[in-house]
Nucleic acid binder design. Sequence first.
DNA 1: TCCCTTATTGGTAATGGTTTTCATTACTAA
DNA 2: TTAGTAATGAAAACCATTACCAATAAGGGA
Lengths: 153, 153
Amino acid sequence: MRGRNQQHWQGQFMGCGYRMTKPREEILGVMEKTMDHLSAEDIYLAVHKFYPNIGLTTIYRNLELLVKMELIVKFEFGQGKAKYELADQYSKKEHHHHLVCKKCSRIFDYSDFMEKEVRFLKDTEKGLSKKYDFQITKHLIQFYGYCNKCQKK
Amino acid sequence: MRGRNQQHWQGQFMGCGYRMTKPREEILGVMEKTMDHLSAEDIYLAVHKFYPNIGLTTIYRNLELLVKMELIVKFEFGQGKAKYELADQYSKKEHHHHLVCKKCSRIFDYSDFMEKEVRFLKDTEKGLSKKYDFQITKHLIQFYGYCNKCQKK
DNA sequence: TCCCTTATTGGTAATGGTTTTCATTACTAA
DNA sequence: TTAGTAATGAAAACCATTACCAATAAGGGA
């Protein structure tokens, strides 16, 4: 089950003295195939189907590594467990942010209104990093509320 | 140790069938006096000084209640523990967002560039809620990176 | 190909923030 | 005073994540 990024990933691992192992291949494979936001346990269960020997520890360890390598991104939506997505450049999805439903906990991606956002972020990051001498590496923009099904109309 | 919001809070509690108790008074008192972003444990330790019988459970329970009543706000900065601040209208601070240092974990408030932000949020929230039929109640904007002391220059 | 070194793994136990449970106490309204 | 209910504190439970450790496997060199 080789994804289209397989070659590239192999190179990334090797280049850093890491190895392309079965668990890593499966984790990335699962993430490549889904449009969802998966928790460590979700990934564990999915990988477990093809590779029943996998340990939950291995999932956590590799998720941490993959985040460090910037192949995937970790999100916290205030739901008690972290969720993971493939990094933009490896994903079928465009660059996006999230709407989080406070009732059903579903996450909705959106890629709209990005021109405005990009302008806002550019200006703000520039201003902040100068004023506070703070080197910004990442921003987080999320909206919380009630989705279509969960709002009382 | 009555804070300037005491009267108002008393009214808020009574109006909802809740009571203004000693633990609640102390928790709000601690939060009123600090400029920091306190964890449940921080608050526990601070309250414990004046009120040694306080239980950690009571802290958690009341923080949850105070969040629900919108007297305080809960933040998650990806540091494994939630932090709390007095809501804007009760706080000495202006409306603000946060810079989070990935190295030393300190949180820096900023209130700059809000005109740009307000414009961006207004437009984006309007567009999103219409397009996705999503009722937005809250937004989260945070920047991560390295503070003055932690960046390698 | 066979070693050798070192990365990697999986199971289990531990961690740590947060919640639940439950018996007790403290208000408040009648 | 009393009944009804809110609130508390201690201890136990929860649960996502991490640490530990012995066993395994991948890749480079001979």
